[in-house]
Amino acid sequence: MLAPPSPVTVEIIVNGTPRRACVEPRTTLVDFLREHLGLTGTHIGCEHGICGACSVLLEGEPVRACCLFALQVEGLSVTTVEGLAPARGELSRLQNAFCEAHALQCGYCTPGMLIACHDLLARNPRPSEEEIREAIGGNLCRCTGYQQIVDAVKLASGQEAAHG
């Protein structure tokens, strides 16, 4: 029996602040965020790279936090759903649009959807319906609220929702 590998210290910049914790090598980024930092906004769904609920921005790009080890992210910058709002107690334009367009029912997929849509709007401020559907292709919604999610992104980008 091999001795278990000893925990290692990892430092990751989370929502602009350097955060440090002692983790096992097998600790995923999503467990680091939720268990070590208490940032439970990022959800764990399928845990094997399908549902996208755990999506966060890594150096500004959406990735699945369940398919990354915290150690792989050492020294890099991560933005979680908690970091999308401009200030405490406020919501981003996209988050407000999600509320307005009823883009969530159970809310489980919402953090991942917000990350994917936030990234889309950063790259493409006026996406078409097809582009929105492609951008959320890596995120599953089990309430099948895709229509309202598409509407919310349209609304946030200043376009009339097709199905409002």
Partner: peptide, 9 residues
């Protein structure tokens, strides 16, 4: 390939 989360990693 896959989706954007996969393409970024």
């Amino acid at each position: 390939i896959g989706d954007i989360q996969v393409r970024n990693r």
